[in-house]
Amino acid sequence: MIFLQMALYCEARPILQHEAFHAMPPVGRFQRWQTEDMMLTLSGTGQAEAATCAAVTCAMHHPTASDLFVVLGTCAALEGKAEKGRLYRARSIEDLGSGRVFYPDLVLDLGLPEAGLLSGYQELKSQKERVWYRDGRDLPALYDMESAAACAAAGHFFGPHQIVVLRIPSDSGDDAGLVTPERISDMIGQQMDTLDSVFQRLKAFSELLGQESAQVMEEDPAFLEQTEAALRCSASMSLRFRQLVRYACSAGIAYREILERYVQEGLLPVTGRKEGKDLLAQFEKELTR
């Protein structure tokens, strides 16, 4: 599942129209929509809203190793190098309140230009003096008022490779008043092709993460428990038995055939703990020959 968090309805509108989302009951003030593999939630603007929304989403849905958390929306451009209307991926998100910097892992290649994102608590006009010190850096710098807190909250549930922050600069702070909801929708709408391919890659990445975590093999718990009972396992024998099974699975050894042979030969179930220990030792020997 991709948990997509956006601040405003006008930002989300082109995406809701493009993908087959259906509305879900809101949680508190947070409106939500869902497709088969994405859930879009509107947080409202500001760090507190963004953190609360991310925390609520995570607490309700218990993200797994294959889920992703994506912050998407418009922002302000801090200097000439950031192109208005273009989709950027934030490679660092600096909380202007605490000075803490969050680095999303960039192992997933999204093919997007990257930017440094400063995330503050006031509108850019009043922040300008504090952020202009970044002049001269060889990197587009962006400014928003949600990502730092959203990432901090999501970071309690997701690894840094599962968090992606995407921003489209819509103004330079001074001209923010000129940016109407319609213009914002237009701007996101114009990036829909790029967003489409980004979503495809995010879905494929989520699938990859799922495959990676599925590599840790799980044997049928009922079968393991039955065999442990038949072996009269103590707690430490159970641990040993499970490790042997895990090894056998990873080495591609048909261990069930060995256990079935024990049953046919009348060795399993055992009559006492001592026999169980001996049989477990024999099982280990056969596996590690």
Binding site: Y103, D105, V107, D109, G155, F158, G159, P160, H161
Partner: peptide
């Protein structure tokens, strides 16, 4: 950072 995916990072080392 907590909760990193070391196996993927090995495949795409920074």
């Amino acid at each position: 950072r907590p909760r990193q995916h070391t196996a993927l990072q090995h495949a795409s080392q920074a």
